[in-house]
Simulated assay, not measured.
Amino acid sequence: MTSKPHPISFLRPLLQKAALGLALLGPVLAAPARSEPASKASLNVSVSVPTIAANAADVASVDGLMRAFYAVVNVRPDGQRLWARDRTLYSPWVRFIGTSISASGTPEVVVWDHQQLVDASEPLVQRGFSETEIHRSTRSYGNIAHVDSTYEAVLDGPNSPQRFRGVNSIELYFDGQRWWIASVMWMSEAASHPIPASLLPDR
């Protein structure tokens, strides 16, 4: 079984939010390993994301950020998109890093900025996508925090919904006024890499 990266968890998000899955999102399109952000020339930048002020409740705490992180991707296919709200959660230099395991067992990595993630994820969201956090582990020190957020997601398909789960690894910081997400990295669960008990709800 081959694992496909999902974006945002996140869409998280997320959702290859080119072969994505962001928190965000559903299964990602298969893509070769790369060590730098995908070129915007290789994507059709078609989704307009207005600049808006952040919702104070979204950015006042780590909990607020995480609630918004998942809320923005749980929108009906015919519903109003929340990409503008989504963008307010992240630092301007944020990177979304989708990891997967190829059919040959080789790790693969794809990197996006926020606009690239939105453009890659929108077709998946249009099909119908939902993502729910089922477990969270948070470590914090001073003005920095790390969150491991385990998710379950459903992507509608032509025959039956695709169901999958994975883990979002999220770095956050506080600048004295609000919290920001600096990076989101995720991996979908695979038979060769089951999610450990420490990242799953207690039974």
Results as ranks from 00 to 15, higher is better:
F174S: 09
V147Y: 01
S130G: 13
W186C: 06
Q162C: 02
R163T: 13
S149G: 08
D58R: 09
G157C: 09
V59N: 02
D175E: 05
G176L: 04
R136A: 07
A71L: 10
E122D: 15
G128Q: 08
S140V: 07
A68P: 01
S121D: 10
S169R: 03
F174G: 08
F69H: 08
T138E: 10
M66R: 01
Q115D: 10
W83T: 11
A60P: 08
H114E: 15
R127W: 03
R95S: 14
R81K: 08
D63Q: 07
E131W: 00
M185R: 08
A182Y: 00
M185H: 06
S102C: 07
I97N: 05
I97D: 01
R81E: 13
V75G: 05
T150W: 03
V147D: 02
T138V: 15
R165P: 13
E131D: 14
R85W: 05
Q177F: 09
R163L: 12
Y90R: 03
G166Y: 01
L82Y: 05
A153Q: 11
R165N: 15
G79E: 08
S100Y: 06
V94Q: 10
W179Y: 05
R127I: 05
I97S: 09
G105Y: 11
A103R: 11
A71I: 02
Y70V: 13
G176F: 01
S102N: 13
S100Q: 12
E152W: 00
L155E: 13
W180N: 07
F174T: 04
S102I: 11
D113T: 06
N159D: 14
R85K: 10
F174N: 15
F129I: 08
N143E: 05
Y151R: 14
V154M: 07
Y173I: 09
N55Y: 04
R95I: 05
G98V: 06
S104C: 03
R67F: 02
D63P: 00
W179I: 01
F129Q: 09
R139Y: 09
L82N: 10
E171P: 03
W83I: 03
R139T: 09
R76G: 14
H114T: 11
V125S: 15
S102D: 15
D86V: 07
R87F: 10
E131L: 10
H135I: 03
H135V: 05
A84G: 03
E131S: 15
R81G: 07
W180C: 04
S183D: 00
Y90H: 11
P107K: 00
E131T: 14
D156Q: 15
I144R: 04
S100M: 12
R67W: 00
P123I: 13
N159P: 02
L172D: 11
H146P: 00
S183Y: 00
V111E: 02
A120I: 08
G128S: 09
F69L: 13
G79K: 02
D119C: 12
Q80C: 07
W180Q: 07
D175P: 07
S91E: 12
S102M: 11
P123Y: 02
N143G: 04
Q115Y: 01
A68H: 00
I144S: 13
H146Q: 06
R127H: 10
M185G: 14
F129A: 13
V59S: 00
R87S: 14
H114R: 12
V62D: 04
V154W: 08
R163P: 04
